[in-house]
Design a protein around this nucleic acid. Structure first.
Lengths: 103, 103
DNA sequence: TGAACATATGAAAATATGTTCATATGTTAC
DNA sequence: GTAACATATGAACATATTTTCATATGTTCA
């Protein structure tokens, strides 16, 4: 009990692949920007695209990646589809990264 | 004071790029495995390569990426060069990711 | 039903990334 | 100095990823 057991035990290979895949999702500036954009309020696809000054298609493709990795929540309202960050977990991961970048 | 201000404010574009670049480093299974391998004790390049059953060159290339991103510490002792994780920050980022993957 | 709008998706092109091979560089011991 | 060993690096290749364009799908409203 003299040492905190943090990331010490090597998880199964499969878990490590999943872990890398998860971080891969955070490793793209477009997706990071999308995540920040919808971290306060949910937003429609077009609004995100306008907000970031990028093509609707680009945003849609990247939202799919975020969806597949369960990082966003989706809600349809009429023609619009609203996206928001899935949970605080996601924010925490980003914060940890920010801490490292800003230090 | 009714809402916790977490990742709400959108940082500068440049910071977002750095952030994505940081996560990109975590987004490769070889690098993740290296980080786990050296999270307990420092290890020489060859030892890491043997431990992961990969080429010395592959490991060396990836260690360079980790070095450039200040995620590892380096110590030379004779012919060997020993690598270890830079700080607890790195472990925390990995842990956050693991939490998400394992949940 | 059809027009208008919002979103998703497939394919192609451009770019980035990871691994391997061959070899260079750096260190030690003789 | 030179042989032996450890690590780093450049170039080439294979693979993955991101964006764009064109178009399909889904929804509303008249």
């Amino acid at each position: 009990m003299e040492e905190k057991n943090t990331a010490n035990e090597m998880p199964d290979l499969e878990v490590l692949f999943e872990l890398a895949d998860l971080f891969k999702v955070f490793g793209d500036s477009t997706r990071i920007r999308i995540m920040f954009t919808i971290s306060d309020n949910e937003m429609s696809v077009l609004n995100i695209a306008e907000s970031l000054n990028m093509e609707q298609s680009t945003i849609s493709h990247q939202l799919r990646v975020l969806r597949q990795n369960k990082l966003v929540r989706v809600r349809r309202d009429g023609k619009q589809i609203y996206y928001s960050l899935d949970d605080d977990h996601v924010k925490k991961i980003i914060e940890m990264g920010l801490d490292h970048v800003l230090e």
